[in-house]
Structure formats: C-alpha cells, structure tokens
C-alpha cells in the first residue's frame, strides 16, 4: 500500500516539483518564501481551474480545445454587462459567467453526444466560432480598466488569509471535484466511459451523455475563469488567453492524465498545472530568457508523456500465481 502510494504518478510529480523548487531556490532563495509561493499559486489558479475541467473531458476519451475561447467570450460578455450595468452585484456577474460558460460547454457536449462528431473537430469549430462572436459583439474594441467598476475588478484580488480570492476559488474547485470524481456515480461514470466504453455501455452507463456532462463541467469552469481572468487583468479583448488551451492540455498530460482516456485524477491536474506555473514564474527570476520557457514546457510535456507511456506499457500476461500476488 505504502509502496504503491510512493510510486504513484502524483507522488512522482510532487517529487519533481520539490526538486524544481530546490533548484530554483539554490539560485534565488526568495522564490520559496510563503508569500511568493502564494503568489505563484494565485497566478496559476486559472490554469488549475481549466485543467480540472480538461482532465474530466480527456478522461472520457475526448478533448476540449474551446476552453480558452469560451473563457475569452464569457470574459467579454461579463465585461460588457459590467460596463452597461456597473451596479450589478458580483454574485450576478458570477452566475452569468458560470451560466454562459456552461451553455457553451453544453453546445460542445450535445454535438459530441447526439451527432457523434469527433470532439477535436467539434471544439476546433466552436473555438473559432466563440472567438468570432467576441469580435462581433465587441466590434473588435477593448474593454479597458477604467470602464470596469471597482467592485468588478476587486473581487478576485481580495486577499483572505494571505491568499487572493482567485487562489481560494482554485482550492475550492480542487476539493469539490475531488469529491465529485471519487464519491459520486457521475465521477465513476467518467472513469468507466473512458476506460472501456464498450463495457460501460453494457453496465448501463450512457457513454455519450457522460461525455456531455464532461464538456458541460469543462465549460462551466471556463466560464467562471473567464470572469476571474478579465477582472484580474482588468482588460478584455478578442485575443485574451490565446493559445491557453494548449497549456491546459499540457498541464493534464504532465499531471499523468492518459490521453487515451480512463486514467487521471484532480490531484494530477493540479500538480501538472503547478509544475507549468512554477516554471513560468521562476524562469524570469533565475535569469533564463522567457523565450526558453516554451522550450522547457515542451520538454516537460514530452518527458511526462514518455514516463506515462513507460508506466502504461503492457506488462504482458501475468501467468504465475506468485507474480500476481505481489502486484
């Protein structure tokens, strides 16, 4: 039991992150002060939120490339709502963001479920459509800091117990979805539908519907992140978070989520996102050109996938009784 815990993907990743932090600290000790680590975590929170949704989608053998575009569209809509009605309470803004994000996720889900279109095609299409809609509703104009209300901008930055609300929301999402994935029938269905769709169907699980719920959750989290993103950076325009969907997929892959479906945990998605977040935040302070950042992230992805491929390689049939009892 202990041995399995220590050799799990998540434990390996924790080890890698600790090693990474030690390496950075040897050149720049201030990086690992609690305040800075809280800062890094806060900075990585949007990635964590999206990676949780993406992890669930990938678990069901799908992929959601539209998350960043969903984030940008939802962000633009709530920004414009804020400009039009500055007195609207933040709770309503949050409801609009989550509601709209959920709706956009459902569109992906319905197309995958009812029309059986491959998820990569569906979300590539909706990604482009969402970005196009932002352009149409905003005329390509920016919503700038001075147009947003103070309350709108303050919400994600309010510091509670040393961590901004943005960071707390990521922590809440991690807890909530850990419970969903391990304690609910829906969570179990995600694993079953991706692990063996054929067997899941005969066990009474509607695989298409399960995938629909995965896209819905991914969309809801993207919508939520959309508001948090535009309010934190106090700006909204067509291209925000451009290409961010690839970081999200990368975080999942580094976190041990199998691209073939059926394997992955919330903790893995969290750790994968943190790994990327730490690299992104540390490179400038240790005097490595940010241009190297992409190369280093890319290297991390390939190493992670190679390690997972090694771990997943078929060990062959276990025929000996002795061998089976050990495993």
């Amino acid at each position: 039991m202990l041995k399995r815990l220590l050799t799990s993907r998540e434990a390996l990743l924790v080890g890698a992150i600790v090693l990474l932090l030690a390496l950075i600290a040897s050149r720049f000790p201030a990086f690992i002060t609690p305040a800075n680590l809280a800062n890094v975590f806060n900075d990585t929170s949007p990635l964590i939120l999206l990676a949780i949704g993406q992890m669930i989608v990938i678990l069901t053998k799908c992929i959601d490339l539209s998350v960043a575009a969903n984030l940008a569209l939802t962000g633009m809509v709530v920004s414009m709502v804020n400009v039009a009605a500055p007195d609207l309470p933040i709770l309503v803004i949050l409801a609009i963001a989550v509601g709209l994000g959920t709706l956009l996720g459902m569109i992906n889900g319905v197309l995958v479920w009812k029309l059986a279109i491959p998820p990569i095609v569906v979300t590539l299409g909706t990604m482009t459509i969402f970005r196009g809609i932002i352009f149409v509703i905003s005329d390509g104009k920016w919503v700038n800091s001075h147009e947003m209300s103070a309350a709108f901008k303050a919400f994600p930055r309010t510091v509670l117990l040393g961590l901004p609300v943005l960071g707390w929301i990521a922590i809440l999402a991690v807890i909530l979805f850990t419970i969903v994935m391990t304690r609910t029938t829906l969570g179990r269905a995600f694993y079953a539908a991706g692990g063996n769709p054929h067997a899941a169907t005969y066990a009474g699980i509607n695989v298409g519907k399960t995938q629909f719920w995965a896209f819905t959750i991914s969309g809801a989290l993207a919508g939520l992140t959309g508001y948090l993103w535009v309010s934190r950076f106090a700006v909204s325009y067509v291209d925000i978070a451009g290409g961010f969907e690839l970081d999200v997929v990368a975080a999942c892959v580094i976190g041990g989520v199998s691209i073939m479906g059926g394997i992955g945990t919330v903790a893995g998605a969290l750790l994968g996102a943190l790994f990327l977040g730490i690299i992104k935040n540390a490179l400038p302070v240790v005097d490595i050109s940010p241009f190297w950042q992409m190369a280093i992230s890319g290297g991390a992805i390939i190493i992670a996938v190679a390690l997972n491929a090694q771990a997943n390689r078929k060990k062959g049939r276990i025929i000996l009784k002795r061998a089976e009892q050990v495993s």
Binding site: Y191, G195, Y202, G204, G262, I263
Partner: peptide
C-alpha cells in the same frame, strides 16, 4: 475496465 480497481468493476452496473 482494466484501469479501475476490482471493486469498482464489480459494482459498476
């Protein structure tokens, strides 16, 4: 479902 533990396979339906 090979990636799930025994008990989760047995109880799935």
């Amino acid at each position: 479902i090979l990636d799930l533990p025994i008990f989760q396979n047995v109880t799935l339906p």
